[in-house]
Design a protein around this nucleic acid. Structure first.
Lengths: 246, 246
DNA sequence: CAGTGGTCTAGACCACTTA
DNA sequence: AAGTGGTCTAGACCACTGA
């Protein structure tokens, strides 16, 4: 592997891409867990039999994807979803002035049942697999703004329990990671405008028919497999969804 | 500049960041225009008095931001908004199956007038500066789906003319670049759900009060200054806004 | 102080493109 | 064949961190 020509061998992927996969493989196996410090670049290079520059390129890429965090003078760490980070990254609702507020979440319902057809399809599960179905109401400045319907593959979240009916400054993704070892690394969202139905209206305190912003999010784990399907309906009267294009 | 210690001098920015700025400066001055090929890494390195690796790091960053396009065996080029690229990058509306369709645009109105207060504020212009005000209707598969209100600083678009009333597969950003040398490099979007007003309803062929997806976009040029403010109202009955979070 | 990542350099071979 | 970016290596000095 020291000879750069070896890259043209049976495996055509660049060395740094292979290094990256080796590291992710260890994360998936649980050898390295969120918050752990990695061996230094030099040690990793020696272990994998490549140069330090190659390890560096792999780690730089992973840092750009928020998989690891690098700190000069300290080391490289497996990224951990903090309240702050998860919020910054996955919560895109802001108020009129563009300020992000800390949302609270109140779980209204949580039960295990067989997946509906749409749920099985979106989560890439066999028909009628077991799923957790959750309903949650999120508030900003104490006012209910978002009603969420969440579906989770039950197999990934054994024994899931959550306190019902209390407003908590919870980020579910922190919980997924800490209690079940599942790290959400990316998500796809589809946004629509819809009219509030009776349940939306009651939960959010608006009139039936009020335009709401619907966010359909599929979240994926380290291995790219679906981890959560979340359908949110937001009262966008005093908030909006913020997105940057670069 | 050859001595790496020089970086600790009066200018604390890394060399590759300085190289990046030198290159962007030349793009802003018009020395290098969209589509132009840059000198090779080696030549740039010699010219700037740094190593090839440092130029490479600067160019790699710029490629990641779509400012340049690198092609192995060919060279590095100043990025050009093609119809395809602008669409892929800045048009986020998709149909129910997640497929992106080619939209057409019909300019309903285009005139120059004094900026309204909100326009001046968003575009960072002095009050009552001259702006172009445009109204445009965009269709997908021949059906009107998006009504846009667009404001442009008149100073940046002298003599702007557009054919009125015809459906054209136009990307305005391609036009901005080709006719006015203005390259849109990033944009900030705020999304809300709103009820269709009388004009929306008539233009989009929906009932008044129908929930519409409103997209408030501020586009910025190479130098980071606002270039366009666009307020779009979309019928999201058969389409959605797609966004990826990584 | 020793160890870490951050930056910079120099030089090698490779794959790809055009001519 | 010549020139380009893509990958990989080796080694240097820097700034930052914690003990």
């Amino acid at each position: 592997m020291n000879d750069s020509g070896a890259v043209s061998g049976p495996d055509f992927r660049p060395l740094y891409a292979q290094v990256r996969e080796l590291i992710i493989g260890r994360m998936l196996r649980g050898d390295w867990r969120p918050g752990d410090i990695l061996p230094s670049e030099g040690r990793l290079a020696a272990e994998f039999g490549v140069s330090q520059g190659t390890v560096r390129k792999a780690l730089d890429e992973m840092a750009a994807q928020n998989l690891v965090v690098r700190r000069q003078g300290l080391g490289t760490f497996i990224a951990r979803h903090s309240q702050q980070h998860a919020l910054f990254h996955f919560f895109h609702i802001r108020d009129e002035r563009g300020v992000k507020e800390l949302p609270t979440g109140r779980v209204l319902q949580l039960r295990q049942r067989k997946a509906e057809r749409a749920e099985a399809r979106r989560l890439d599960l066999p028909p009628r697999s077991a799923v957790w179905a959750m309903r949650r109401l999120r508030a900003l400045r104490g006012k209910p703004v978002i009603l969420e319907r969440i579906a989770l593959p039950a197999a990934l979240f054994p024994g899931l329990e959550l306190p019902l009916g209390r407003d908590l400054p919870d980020e579910l993704y922190v919980l997924y990671q800490q209690r079940f070892g599942i790290t959400v690394v990316r998500a796809e969202e589809k946004l629509r405008a819809v009219a509030a139905d009776a349940l939306d209206a009651k939960s959010l305190g608006v009139a039936e028919g009020t335009p709401l912003l619907e966010i359909d999010r599929l979240a994926r784990g380290l291995d790219g497999r679906p981890v959560e399907w979340r359908l949110s309906r937001c009262n966008s009267a005093h908030h909006h969804y913020y997105s940057e294009i670069e």
